[in-house]
Design a protein around this nucleic acid. Structure first.
Lengths: 125, 125
DNA sequence: TTGCATAGGGATAAATTTTTCCCCTATTGT
DNA sequence: ACAATAGGGGAAAAATTTATCCCTATGCAA
């Protein structure tokens, strides 16, 4: 695993939440798990742009941060289910707030983001 | 400027907000500007762990995303002031929600984060 | 005249994150 | 035997983000 060389700041609430949510796919993972998509393969289908590898890595981090639990069933073929911990559940309203803001300002956001990318055409599949 | 090779997804609200907030210091910049610290040098003092360079870059991105405006005063020594746009202001409650969650769970977060870092000692001054 | 503060840019290096590629487990079905 | 399924992991490459270093310019103070 990668060993950080620059230690993070943990001074305020924003630093702290950043530390557990900062990761390209983490918020989406939490959201989809919240919605009931609990198995790795389901999550991978829900987030096809992420490689299987990163999802595993980020799920493990979420688990280490106690936001999700990983339940392994002793069956074949293997079956694994992730679910939110009570702690993780407290994050749902916050994530919802993020998503709502994005939805409410969708049009404008799309415009400014595309303008900055200097693209006018086809994006994200 | 760096040219993205992988285009971002802009499918849902979470993608969209991620696109404008994803950057190590952006949320803090918005927050401090909201609190009235509008000049670059002030912001740099508030966020001493970020290099001057990145702050400039991220401020410019925030500006391009229309979350802040940059006002330049034609004086010497140069004076610049950033402030939130109306659009940027709509983001404040969301950022507050993030910060509050972090504050509310400070102790637990510190614990799980430090455990994962495998550190037990001194961190971020 | 040198040094400081203010604001910012370019080039390059370093750090970090994400992707790619390939491999392993075990069982059931063909 | 071999593929398919389901869940992972290591190594290395690629992508991306941050940090470092050095430079410009002006007016003021020591």
């Amino acid at each position: 695993m990668y060993e950080r060389k620059i230690l993070p700041n943990l001074n305020c609430g924003l630093d702290l939440i950043g530390e557990v949510l900062y990761g390209k796919w983490k918020i989406r993972l939490l959201w989809f798990i919240h919605q009931g998509h609990q198995r790795p393969s389901e999550l991978q289908r829900k987030i096809p742009d992420a490689s299987r590898r990163v999802l595993n890595i980020q799920l493990k981090e979420l688990e280490e941060h106690e936001l999700v639990v990983r339940k392994v069933y002793a069956v074949v073929p293997p079956k694994v289910e992730y679910s939110l911990t009570d702690f993780g559940k407290t994050l749902i309203p916050v994530i919802a707030a993020l998503g709502n803001w994005g939805d409410e300002h969708e049009e404008r956001l799309r415009t400014v983001i595309l303008k900055r990318l200097g693209t006018s055409g086809e994006l994200g599949e």
